[in-house]
Design a protein around this nucleic acid. Structure first.
Lengths: 215, 215
DNA sequence: GATCAGATCAGGGCTGACCCTCATAGACCC
DNA sequence: GGGTCTATGAGGGTCAGCCCTGATCTGATC
């Protein structure tokens, strides 16, 4: 199996290369940006590429874009994408184009080197390798848009004020409501955001984080 | 040069090992947690250890604590700490104990493998290797730039977990403390962030917002 | 008409998270 | 020695914010 590795973190990249070469595979290139990867694939035609989602110059999705192009233009080349975190829209774009010869794994969830090598081999052979957490989040996402979409207008107002760090008292004074009404709205917010009562969670903070994550 | 490498990310660790062995150095151990590292150093006495700040079980600062112990108990062993992000209080603790045989580098800012190997060698020989960005932030910190700068290392850990939306219970279980200790830290956090008791404010949320605004 | 969702609010109950005071121990500095 | 800071933790107290149930009203839809 001939593999090209693209990641701008030189130590991480060295790790991937070491693992693959130790397992007897040939690494045809180790590069630090997407353009170099695309140029290499065009001439060398490796069996599979292992690509970090985020690479220079903007460190947002250059690696992913390159992966999509390679998948489209070189159908015989497998594409294994590595990401620090789940990025559902990226994963959907990549997997939505047909999941044969595609992998999407999370860097910090690669716990076993043999399994990692096996994933690379499977993708090279036209199979699929997707981290279960990625799948789980894709499924959650398909159930609707953003969690905040489920909130009524009033509930959004209340949540916006919560997200400013306001107490319930401040909120009911501001919106000229009774304390009980604000409590009812907060309860509805938790329910609609799927924040069940759990001893490990501070639900108000989680609701605020959800609000802030919507930008 | 004999090196021990400790990092729970198997791919990253493999990279460090590959880089060092390719440069002709001997890696005496590759371990995934701090206890294993301490046990190894006690019997094998490597020239230098390369340690990730965050390791199991709590993934907060076990690597750093181990590094400090090794530095104190094995003065002939260099200690190179690798971190994902600058953590000024950690860096200050480590470097404040005397910077000979100490290194503090940022994972994503290791751009050149030879330079990295050279840093390891320098630390093994009793020198210093500190990322310029770490130094820059230490200097900025001395100017008292951000409210979070006033927090102790432990307070920062507690606040980070609060900012994940965790309850006090989750925090004290995670950090293996008593409920009372977490309460004390939270109280200190509020005081240091200047969050006085006010009927309009939800102070926990405000503390989290302050944390998030620091990036 | 009936049904549903949203907005509003009351009564009553519980507890996690806050508060205060006090304490020990270790490290560091003068 | 004293003083300061950090980390840890106990005892005791309070209440904001959560919970539940129940209710009324309005507007939209069928």
């Amino acid at each position: 199996m001939r593999v090209a590795v693209a990641d701008d973190s030189v130590l991480f990249r060295a790790g991937v290369v070491r693992v693959l070469t130790s397992a007897g595979h040939e690494v045809t290139a180790e590069v630090g940006d997407a353009d170099q990867l695309l140029a290499h694939v065009a001439v060398a035609g490796p069996d599979v590429v292992v690509v970090d989602v985020r690479m220079p110059p903007t460190h947002t999705n250059e690696g992913l874009v390159a992966a999509e192009r390679i998948h489209a233009e070189h159908p015989g080349t497998g594409v294994l994408v590595l990401s620090q975190a789940v990025e559902p829209s990226y994963a959907m774009n990549l997997l939505g184009a047909g999941a044969q010869g595609i992998g999407y794994l999370l860097k910090d969830r690669v716990l076993d080197l043999d399994e990692f090598v096996d994933s690379v081999r499977r993708v090279a052979a036209g199979g699929t390798a997707v981290d279960p957490e990625v799948i789980r989040q894709l499924i959650s996402r398909q159930r609707g848009q953003h969690p905040l979409d489920a909130l009524s207008a009033r509930e959004r107002e209340v949540l916006a004020l919560m997200a400013e760090g306001r107490s319930n008292q401040s909120i009911f004074e501001r919106l000229v409501l009774s304390p009980k009404t604000v409590e009812a709205h907060v309860r509805n917010i938790f329910a609609k955001l799927g924040l069940v009562e759990d001893e490990d969670d501070h639900r108000r903070v989680l609701a605020v984080l959800t609000y802030l994550s919507a930008g």
